[in-house]
C-alpha cells in the first residue's frame, strides 16, 4: 500500500534529518545531502519530499526562531517521528538481512 514503503530519496531525507539532530530544516537538509552524496539537490525536491513525509506522519515539524539572512522569517525544523524511526529501522533491517545473505565471493576484490 502507498505510504508504508519509503522511496529512495525519502529515506535519504529521513536519514539526514535524523543525523542533523534538531538542526534539520530544509536548507540544511539540502546542504547535507549535497555534501554526502555529491549530487545537486534542488530545494523544491526536498521541500515536496518533506511535505510528503509529514503527510505520511514520518516526520514532525515546528517553527524555530527568526534569523536575519531569512528576512526575519522563522525556520521550520524537522525531526523524525516515532513512525519514521520505525520505518527507518525496518528499512535498515531489510537491507541488513539481504546483505547478510550475500556470499562473500560476490564482493571479492571490490573496495569502496
Amino acid at each position: 500500500m502507498k505510504g508504508t514503503n519509503l522511496g529512495e530519496f525519502e529515506e535519504l531525507v529521513l536519514l539526514t534529518i535524523a543525523s542533523l539532530n534538531n538542526s534539520a530544516y530544509s536548507v540544511s537538509i539540502c546542504d547535507e545531502i549535497e555534501r554526502v552524496t555529491k549530487r545537486k539537490v534542488k530545494l523544491g525536491v526536498v521541500h515536496s519530499s518533506l511535505n510528503r513525509l509529514e503527510e505520511k506522519g514520518l516526520v514532525k515539524s515546528h517553527l524555530g526562531d527568526a534569523t536575519k539572512e531569512r528576512g526575519g522569517r522563522r525556520k521550520r525544523f524537522f525531526e523524525v517521528s516515532h513512525t519514521g524511526k520505525v520505518a527507518l529501522l525496518k528499512a535498515k533491517e531489510q537491507r541488513d538481512q539481504l546483505w547478510s545473505t550475500i556470499p562473500d565471493v560476490v564482493f571479492q576484490g571490490i573496495r569502496s
Partner: peptide
C-alpha cells in the same frame, strides 16, 4: 508561506 519564503531568501542571499 513563512518557512518557504525564508528558505528562498536564504538561497537568494
Amino acid at each position: 508561506l513563512e518557512d518557504l519564503q525564508g528558505d528562498l531568501y536564504e538561497f537568494f542571499n
